[in-house]
Design a protein around this nucleic acid. Structure first.
Lengths: 192, 192
DNA sequence: GTCTATAGGAAGATAGAC
DNA sequence: GTCTATCTTCCTATAGAC
């Protein structure tokens, strides 16, 4: 009896993530999610009984976990701070496919004045990211307040470069942002 | 006979803009647009015969025009470069309501790989913004390549700070970004 | 586990009264 | 110009065969 899934959970979440990154939550209809995943709508409901909201929730969890294990992990190694920052930038290029991929954290965000099922996870992941970066910058010798400020604007620069890439139909904003981070973070952190 | 509109075009576009900024294109159903504007669906179709796409298009045009006349206009005055940059930052706080408002240019963007009816207008406005900023930075004495790079990453920082404000449910990222711009742009541009 | 078929409702859009 | 009522299409979700 054919009970084994035709596609693994990870591959499925990766494909569904493509839809949410490109179309957002409202734009990702079950029909499009089915097309993107290769499964039919009813099959998606079998694997995600609570429907679209569960799909988006698990896709988001998967993406956050992936960010943790690549981008954030590079900040937590036992290398020198400047090398960890350099590693984060390398991981960012992979994670956002050189600027071709939008960020799920941004695409699933709700207005500032409201809160939905994803708000908490998004907020927590962004704060974790900023804190990990802040910690690295402090170890590199920045003053605490300065480290926090620099971490926050660095993550803002990354997110904004992805917004510009989308809006300007070019990966150049992302590329320039990565170079800017290299100069502002790594070169500052390098022991001299 | 009651032919005069109950609400002016500008007020109408402003209210409809709220919906698109908060909910995006797909999330802004005609029902929600009607609620937000105070008109009924059929009335919206009377004033925008081509429907939702026309509404979003005119809302976008109105927002771009508003950006031009406030934020971009401040960059084009005949003041000193450092004063023009300071003025832009002041205008940004108003335009984005101290970080409480998302940017329509970002909310109506389609994936990098695709292009829709709004793509051209969004791309053009972002490029106009970056060019105006670049021009001001050159007048302040930056090398041409440096000015372009700095203009692009500055706009990315602004957009990203709005993304973070949304995601972290706080206007602090926007506030810090404005302070960062003050330091990186204005203080650099000030004649010494 | 996956599928076809379909229920039930919300979406975009229109007709016609006032 | 604005409204109520309605049409059609698309959406989320479910039932039941294989």
């Amino acid at each position: 009896m054919g009970r084994r899934p035709l596609i693994s959970d990870e591959e499925l979440l990766a494909r569904l993530g493509r839809a949410f990154r490109n179309l957002g939550y409202e734009g990702s209809s079950l029909a499009k999610l089915a097309d993107e995943s290769g499964l039919k709508k009813a099959s998606l409901y079998h694997r995600f009984p609570q429907g679209k909201e569960q799909i988006a929730g698990e896709v988001l969890d998967f993406a956050c976990q992936s960010l943790e294990q690549t981008v954030l992990a590079s900040l937590r190694s036992d290398d020198q701070p400047d090398l960890r920052l350099r590693a984060m930038i390398d991981q960012l290029r992979v994670f956002y496919s050189d600027g071709n991929r939008a960020c799920l954290l941004s695409m699933l965000s709700s207005p500032l004045s409201t809160a939905d099922a994803f708000s908490e996870r998004i907020k927590k992941t962004l704060e974790t990211w900023i804190s990990a970066l802040e910690q690295t910058l402090e170890e590199a010798g920045l003053a605490p307040g300065q480290a926090r400020q620099s971490a926050l604007t660095s993550v803002a620069l990354i997110q904004g470069s992805l917004v510009l890439a989308r809006g300007m139909k070019s990966t150049q904003p992302f590329e320039l942002a990565m170079e800017q981070l290299q100069r502002d973070l790594v070169d500052e952190a390098r022991p001299h």
